[in-house]
Amino acid sequence: MLKEKLKNYHLILASKSPRRQQFFKDLNLDFTIQLKEVEEIYPKELKGTEITEFLADLKSKAFTNLSDKDLLITSDTIVWLENEALGKPKDEADAFKMLQSLSGKKHEVISSISIKTNNFQKIISDVTSVYFKEISDEEINYYIKNYKPFDKAGAYGIQEWIGFIAIDKIEGSYFNVVGLPVHKLYDALMKL
């Protein structure tokens, strides 16, 4: 259905995330992957969805030569804990600190998607609450050593070992926590 809806577009996914790429494959979409380096810096006064919306839009602005048939998808995800954004960890120590800060607490995973053509742009966002149980330093070290979560906001992947053992419950979209609110993307693309 969606594939038929988008048949007149050249769909571009601007993401190196293997999880986002897999979602597009699972939706049975024809798409190309195009990457542009963007320095992900945002104004410090931004909070929550303001950050991810700003960054999704910033990533879309790197594509200055879209054709009339191009439909560009950019996205950004953060972990929002106690009024602070956790992005991707810089190294093992940073990953350890992030996971330790999530232990025993509720946080939010916030994703925004920019859908852009030459004459149209829509940004959609989704927020999922995630509740972590207490996790030990030993569990954190095991996860970092074996799963190397350096490409993931908040230093974890819900679909990996840490998700199996540490997450008590979630409120909202599981797929948003994996990295893309697929249901919202599908609805927005079906309305084009």
Rank of each mutant, 00 (worst) to 15 (best):
K152T: 02
K133D: 15
K133Q: 14
K145P: 06
M98G: 08
V127G: 02
D126N: 13
F150C: 09
G157D: 07
I135N: 12
K97W: 04
S114H: 02
Q100C: 01
S114E: 10
V130D: 06
S114V: 00
S114D: 08
T117N: 09
V109N: 07
I123P: 01
Y131V: 05
M98T: 01
E108L: 04
S101I: 01
Y143S: 10
I123Y: 02
T117R: 12
H107P: 04
E138S: 15
N141K: 15
S112W: 07
D137L: 10
I135D: 13
Q100N: 14
V127S: 11
F120D: 09
P149L: 07
A153K: 11
Y156I: 01
S136L: 05
S111L: 04
D151R: 09
Y156N: 06
Q121W: 00
Y156V: 01
K105G: 01
D137T: 06
E138R: 14
D126H: 10
K106P: 00
K133S: 14
I140A: 11
Y147S: 04
D126R: 01
E134H: 12
T128R: 13
K122C: 01
Y156R: 08
T128Q: 12
E108T: 01
E134V: 14
G104T: 02
F150S: 12
K152Q: 10
Q121H: 04
S125V: 00
H107V: 00
V109L: 04
E139H: 07
H107G: 03
A153G: 11
I124P: 11
V130N: 06
Y131I: 03
S125I: 00
Q121C: 08
M98W: 06
L99S: 03
I135P: 13
I158A: 05
E134D: 15
F96R: 14
T128V: 06
S111F: 03
I158P: 13
I113V: 15
D94N: 15
L102D: 05
Y142C: 05
N146V: 04
